[in-house]
């Protein structure tokens, strides 16, 4: 029993790490530009498929490095051509735009790579269990946790220690003042969007190794990311991280005791948080 619970907690932690990685990107974009990026899941899927396509040429490691970067470049272009025009308008419009993009991405990946699930090979030595007692502790799973941890650490490093990060944080609080102080806000928002999409691409590459490669992978991961943001608190990146991990573990544990409620449990958590603490666990008072 302990093993089963541990197994599911660990599983939940990994899924939660995906949610968190995706939700962090969503949060970045939402905090600075007020855009809910519905196409985030589409970017995630593209990241995964790019890694799959690149693998024969650059190998697993090359794909892990290159695919998120290419995805981010696509994100920069989308922001530059489409999303940028909607800043300052009712958030309704950017919502609808990214909603349409999500449709196009999902259908586009289906068109290019087919609707069938594709096999994605991770290096063999990563797949073997590390311990015979804890069979579920394969190298790949630990590896994913390490990569996510590195990515999150990297993100917080950028935000707290670099000039770009400081500008992003300042812009989140008061974009107008940042602009008046001489920062090119257009470039700032563009870079920030790219950073968010990079995280989606990275989550995509990691997720396909675990969940398999199919066009709907994006739309199945985006809703939990929203829940992660709401539970953690809108506007707070540590909150988003916490929210993602929490709902992942909660779903994992629920799988043991009440499998058919696996998906529903995170929404129950969300309702509870909204009732008791509408701003979310780590959200700031009065921001939304």
């Amino acid at each position: 029993m302990t093993q089963v619970v541990l197994f599911n907690v660990f599983n939940g932690l990994i899924v939660g790490a995906f949610y968190a990685l995706m939700a962090l990107g969503l949060s970045l974009i939402m905090n600075l530009s007020g855009v809910i990026n519905f196409a985030h899941g589409g970017f995630l899927a593209i990241g995964g498929y790019l890694a799959f396509t690149l693998m024969p040429y650059v190998g697993f490691w090359g794909g892990l490095v290159l695919a998120p970067i290419l995805t981010a470049v696509l994100g920069l272009i989308v922001e530059r051509v489409l999303v940028r025009r909607l800043y300052g308008r009712d958030p309704l419009y950017s919502l609808l735009l990214t909603f349409g993009l999500a449709f196009m991405f999902e259908d586009g990946t289906r068109f290019i790579w087919g609707a069938q699930s594709l096999p994605y090979q991770v290096p063999g030595w990563l797949l073997s269990p590390l311990s015979s007692d804890y069979f579920f502790l394969t190298g790949y799973r630990l590896f994913m946790v390490v990569i996510v941890a590195l990515a999150v650490a990297g993100l917080f490093y950028i935000l707290n220690r670099t000039r770009l990060g400081m500008r992003i944080r300042a812009g989140t609080l008061d974009l107008e003042t940042v602009s008046v102080l001489g920062v090119n806000v257009r470039v700032l928002r563009n870079m920030n969007f790219g950073l968010g999409i990079y995280l989606a691409g990275l989550a995509g590459v990691l997720a396909v190794g675990q969940l398999g490669l199919q066009p709907t992978i994006g739309s199945s991961l985006i809703m939990p990311s929203f829940v992660a943001i709401i539970v953690g608190g809108l506007g707070s990146l540590p909150g988003t991280l916490l929210g993602g991990l929490l709902i992942g573990v909660a779903s994992g544990v629920t799988t043991v005791f009440f499998p058919s409620a696996t998906e529903a449990v995170m929404y129950v958590m969300m309702a509870a948080v909204l009732l008791v603490r509408p701003r979310g666990l780590l959200g700031e008072e009065g921001r939304f």
Binding site: M30, G34, M223, F288
Partner: peptide
């Protein structure tokens, strides 16, 4: 009652998420 105090994008996001239940 759980959502009416929220506004804008936050309201949108919470309503989407609730719909999934």
């Amino acid at each position: 009652p759980m959502i009416i105090r929220l506004r804008g994008v936050y309201f949108a996001m919470v309503t989407i998420a609730f719909a999934q239940v």
